[in-house]
Design a protein around this nucleic acid. Structure first.
Lengths: 225, 225
DNA sequence: ACACCACCTATCCGACCGGATAGGAGCTCT
DNA sequence: AGAGCTCCTATCCGGTCGGATAGGTGGTGT
């Protein structure tokens, strides 16, 4: 992997401030902050700063710092879902804000875009694609990776544990992890309670649980939901 | 920041294989893979390769590649909790394997270390600390960030949620997170079942749960245990 | 046509849970 | 000494859970 040419702008040291793109990265994963800043800093015409939570990002912006783009991690202290995004976007000034996330799925991405964010960037994106997306968004466009947005609604067929379960059992298990009663699950899925009980019982067998709390903990630890 | 040297091998042909540390990174976040490889490649005496899931890591190792250290992301296709770690560690050869994670809490870290891993690395670690940890682990030591592991060592003192609970309620809550029945908890703590029920009820009120599964999930998500 | 499977519904029962209520023992602080 | 706290025990009750059993529907593959 070499870095002789990143873009056509590479060797033009005449870069002016107006042409330099300022990016603020807010993410509680210091590892990513450090390495990503290094990567972006290596890109011509790009300068990145980083903070570790939403409050710090807000403080920077409130202090009058101007950024061409602000990247917010979706799961970071202070975010609280989309509230943090809305708070930053509601600040005075004309800010372009994008969400970056390692865990959020398509439904979250859609809500993010609907809320008016400049883009949604999963951490499964390559560094190169990310930089391209940054430039794209700085131009005023809205970005989200197409393959990510095309991902099927129920992409649990990948997970080994979920694979053993039928679709319904999976949905019931999701209810269990939310601490719902059989009655509530039945209402939510629009089926009868006895049916829920059946699914509960059979999924216990399949995943090796002996009660709903164990089932919920197993699902959680295996990384489902 | 320039990249005249990516690795010590780049311009120093005298570097011997014995002195170069080979690292395999398995993580489905390509963004982190790209940027972290760049960062590590910039460190003298370190070479990193990366793959995007557990199967690919397994294939590399099965193909006879030798690594001084293998980093596995905890939430990555094929991992399935600790199973993936055990699978890699059970492979023939003498491999040192560490877990890296952006979401796992202390309980997971302890299980990882108990399983014999070389270390546990949260992504909140700085890049510099990570590199230091890598060198440390390559020496045969076991690593985990102290502040992370102290996160709830004698839990009550630190955690705001646990602080509201009495000692007994806390112990009962621990039983709940293991999916135990009131009767089992009573036996383990050597108290009567009605007493357990009392503690259960009062701790529901304190943490805002309405049943044992919710209580367990709340405790888990808040990072207790 | 048949077996098979996932999914749905139903009933019965013993066990457990969640909530209320009512105490008593030991400790600390004022 | 009494107030206040935590921790312990106990009983009662309605509701829920866990497990077994029995059956019906619709789609798939042989």
């Amino acid at each position: 992997m070499t870095f002789q040419r990143h873009t056509a702008l590479d060797d033009r040291a005449t870069q002016t401030d107006q042409n330099t793109m300022r990016i603020l990265i807010a993410d509680d994963h210091e590892l990513l902050r450090d390495t990503l800043m290094l990567y972006i800093g290596n890109e011509p015409g790009m300068v990145a700063e980083s903070v570790q939570d939403l409050d710090a990002a807000e403080a920077r912006m409130a202090a009058g710092e101007e950024y061409d783009l602000v990247l917010l991690d979706f799961t970071m202290p202070g975010m609280d879902g989309l509230d943090g995004l809305r708070r930053i976007m509601g600040m005075s000034g004309d800010h372009r804000v994008a969400i970056i996330s390692g865990t959020a799925q398509r439904d979250i991405a859609e809500e993010v875009l609907a809320a008016g964010a400049a883009g949604f960037l999963p951490k499964t994106l390559s560094a190169k694609s990310l930089v391209n997306a940054l430039r794209f968004m700085a131009l005023g466009e809205q970005y989200a990776p197409l393959d990510f947005m095309r991902a099927s609604e129920n992409d649990q067929q990948k997970h080994p544990l979920a694979k053993q379960l039928s679709q319904r059992e999976f949905e019931v298990l999701e209810g269990l992890t939310q601490g719902k009663s059989n009655k509530e699950i039945a209402r939510d899925l629009d089926i009868r309670e006895p049916t829920v009980k059946l699914h509960v019982k059979t999924l216990y067998r399949k995943i090796g649980a002996s009660n709903r709390t164990q089932a919920a903990m197993i699902a959680k630890e295996k990384g489902l939901f």
